[in-house]
Amino acid sequence: MNTIAIKQLVDKYFEGETSLVEEQQLRAYFKEGAVAEELQEYQPLFQYFATAKREELPSDFDERIVIELQRPAKRRFMRRMVQMSSVAASVMLMVAAYFWYPTTELPSTVSNQINWEQYEITDEEEAYKETKAALKLLSRNLNRGAKKAAKSMDKITKKKRRIEN
């Protein structure tokens, strides 16, 4: 991305108008050394965000948790029962699905078990913003690609002509 586009995104960011993808682009741009001089003042902030995301729990945390979890080992019998009934239920479900399937339509996400809803943007304005940013990126890149392709086509036809002449 060029300097002007990034500067525009930075301004948009402070106005609270950037989409998630644009913010990701900003963090990516400022992550590495090759930042234009006039944009360097913004680097620490976006670098801070990226660095802060790397903070993690200590490696022995899991062990500690497991010890905590295993402490009250009562009601094991009940748990076994619950587990068994859930196995029975899922068998029932599979049988039911098997007979029921051919007449019903399968939602497209079921086959892959991705819960897209979890990531769904449900606010109109934000959806508009995200869509616009996405289309902007798509459109610009399509054009860039097409221009490149046109250039190489040009070269090829020119070469061809030269050979023919």
Binding site: L20, E23, Q24, F49, A52, K53, Y119, E120, I121, T122, D123, E126
Partner: peptide, 10 residues
């Protein structure tokens, strides 16, 4: 949540 974890508004 937004700037570090990249959450959407929702």
């Amino acid at each position: 949540l937004r700037d570090i974890e990249g959450y959407s508004y929702q």
